[in-house]
Structures are given as C-alpha cells and as structure tokens.
Amino acid sequence: MDVEERLEEIAQKLAKRVDTKSCFQCGSCVSACPVSRITDGELYHPRRIVRATLEGEASKLLEQPSLWLCTSCHACLEHCPQKVPVSELVQDLQNLASELGVTPDDIVSEVENIIATGWALAPSESANKRRVELGLPPIPLEEKGKKDLHTIAKATELLSRLKKIKEHKAALKAADEAIQEGGEA
C-alpha cells in the first residue's frame, strides 16, 4: 500500500462530499472541540488536520499520538459552518494510521477482545452471579456471533491491520533494544 495514494483517496473522498475550498479555516471546529480547549490547542487541533489533508500533507499526522485524542464527540462536525465532516476525516486518518500499524494499545486490546469474545467487555462469571442476585437474566454466550465476527474481521481489513499493528510494535521494541544495547557497548 502506498501511503500517499491512500491519503489522496481520503482527500478525494472528502472533496466528493464538500467543496475542498469550502474550509476557510475559521476555527469553529477548534472552539467546539473539548480536547482542543482543555489543551489550549497545543496537542490536538482539528483545523490544522483539515488544512493538512487538503494541502496533501496529512502523512505527517499519521504517526502522531495526538491523532487519537479525538473523543469522537462530533462537536466539530456539527459546528462547522461549511459542513466539513471533521471528525469523520479524523476517523479516516486513524484507519490509515492503523493500516500502517500505529494505534494506541488500549484500543487494540479492546478490539482484539471484541473479535475473541464477541464483546468489548466479555461476560464474566462474577457479573453473571451479581445479575442473578439482582433478578436479571444471565448474559447469553454467543458462539455463532464470535465465529461471525472473526469471519467479518477476515473479510475486511481488520485482521490484517491488527497483524500490522503487532508487527509495528515488535519492530519498535526491537529498535529500542538495539539502541539500549548500543548504549551499553
């Protein structure tokens, strides 16, 4: 996969839905964004993400941890006077970052759990015990559902992205160890 090609696809997808020149960088998305406000726009800045995408410079965003600070509250999208789907663009960029293998650990472990058990939070014995005490029915085990999720993950890019993320993490660790050893030598 060519990253530049995929970024171009994302920019074109955005251009199909909105006039690419329609973002006049007013910053409504930034003032609507709870993460931008709490960090004074220093860590996460949706206006700059839109600009970088439209100017073909989004590749520099893909390895930045800040790309994942988006809460997905979609306030930016609702406040945009030009109807630029900002939060959806951020999700497209996160998908692409995952294709490169860059995704926060907590997100990866939850998604692995979803595929392995069918749920973000797998039904536990202790939860079911408490449910019975409260007069609630036990949580059903969904073997067919688990199998289906695995089938879907295989039929889409989900499984290959999870594999790529694992490889990327292993490569980073190996590089880190090489530096450590180099330092000791």
Binding site: I114, G145, T156
Partner: peptide, 19 residues
C-alpha cells in the same frame, strides 16, 4: 440471542470503519 458487540464506536471503527 445472537447479538454481539455493537461494536464500540470509540475503538473498532477507529481501526476499520468498514468492519
């Protein structure tokens, strides 16, 4: 019976929206 994770719009769709 038969349902699985919705899936969580804060995690799975960030990795693969189509899935």
């Amino acid at each position: 019976s038969g349902f699985t994770c919705c899936p969580n719009p804060l995690t799975l769709s960030h990795i693969d929206h189509e899935a």
